[in-house]
Design a protein around this nucleic acid. Structure first.
Lengths: 218, 218
DNA sequence: ATATATTTTTAGATTACTCTAAATTTTGTT
DNA sequence: AACAAAATTTAGAGTAATCTAAAAATATAT
């Protein structure tokens, strides 16, 4: 079982290796964790001894299969708690990170399961990031423009093509946000406009322009 | 700000001093926290230096005003999370202690506030223990016979008038215990009998005799 | 009241995590 | 290729929390 600190290091290494796709440097880890490179060297050695990372002196570090699985469980908890904080406790999406950073370390497998169920098995967090499933797998399709979705399908809003502030304000007004479920009811063959139904049962009309800029996942 | 360990010691000292009403002994603390008396001595010294407890060597320890306030905030968080786990995540009341023990250390004043609101400002936890309010005060109402409660009100079972064993056996059979929440659905003007709904959604009928002997708090 | 038992504290050591400073390895430049 | 710069590791030390063993204080019993 990993300590609080070990979990933070492992998560940081996982995130960095996802970003760069290459071996992660000691300095990079030290920077994101606000520690000194010397501390990182120590901790990497420990994680390596326990088999969570692959490490060669001076050559950088990478998560092992075991480490990746563990990291994804922590990320899963972090993102589920973020959903809880935003959906249930009415926090704004930009206020939840620090609290989720604490909550992600709570140890109870059954708690995570029950929380997941309570939240309705969400697949993305309030920032649009995917939530790994119980087996630690990220199952989420490619992001495609809403305009490409066929009639009758239900999709999940996972991003925007163009994060222009006027567009975001418009989305806010029509009550579409990351995580909103959308059912495509009708699609005009003429101008590509759409009639869609939102999670709250409301049915609205959107232009092709909006549908092109909204990224969704099936 | 207190560390995880310091919070646990402070809480233990508070609970023990509530029980005994006298100074708390080093051995007693060591026993409830599963540590050694030597460790307790060390920690007490630290808490005393920080002003959370009053301490004289060999004479035992007691929480200060400041320590009491802090302890009640931790207890507040513990009990609110227990309500969350039972009411929202469908845990049983006897499964939540260890998880709440972890959750109580999450640091965010606004989180506690929002959780409290989300849960509907509960005043008791699933074990029937009172939840301190935001100022750290425990507000428990007077105990009154259930028969005096008006229709539509929800109350908490906090005692019995007559602890006759036949009566207690009867309560057990109809699934009423200390801590059970009761909603008064109907009250007969004729014989004082009542239709009540329990925490588990079950609706049952009780005689005036039972209602007279059940003490509840609003 | 004095010896004995119990409780509590102190002393010294250990583990986990962190740091600074110095040594070592790698990288980049000419 | 050789040297300087940067990155990394090691060495040594500090803090927090814990422990065991020994010493000191308090409580108990005859």
């Amino acid at each position: 079982m990993l300590s609080h600190a070990e979990e933070n290091y492992l998560k940081a290494i996982y995130h960095l290796s996802q970003a760069d796709k290459s071996d992660v440097s000691t300095n990079a880890i030290a920077e994101v964790l606000n520690t000194k490179p010397a501390s990182v060297s120590d901790m990497i050695k420990k994680l390596s001894d326990k088999g969570f990372v692959n490490y060669q002196k001076y050559k950088g570090v990478n998560v092992s299969v075991k480490g990746r699985k563990e990291a994804l469980q922590i990320i899963r908890k972090h993102r589920l708690w973020e959903v809880f904080l935003v959906d249930k406790l009415q926090f704004n999406w930009d206020e939840v990170h620090d609290i989720a950073e604490q909550l992600e370390h709570i140890k109870s497998h059954i708690l995570t399961q029950k929380l997941d169920k309570f939240l309705g098995y969400p697949r993305i967090d309030p920032h649009g990031d995917p939530i790994p499933d119980e087996r630690g797998e990220i199952v989420i399709g490619k992001k495609v423009p809403l305009s490409e979705i066929e009639e009758g399908k239900t999709v999940l809003v996972t991003g925007v093509e163009d994060s222009d502030s006027e567009f975001l304000a418009h989305l806010d007004k029509i009550k579409i946000a990351l995580g909103t479920k959308i059912l495509v009811q009708e699609k005009s063959a003429f101008d590509g406009s759409m009639q869609i139904e939102l999670s709250n049962q409301q049915s609205i009309f959107i232009s092709k322009q909006v549908a092109d800029n909204l990224l969704v996942t099936e």
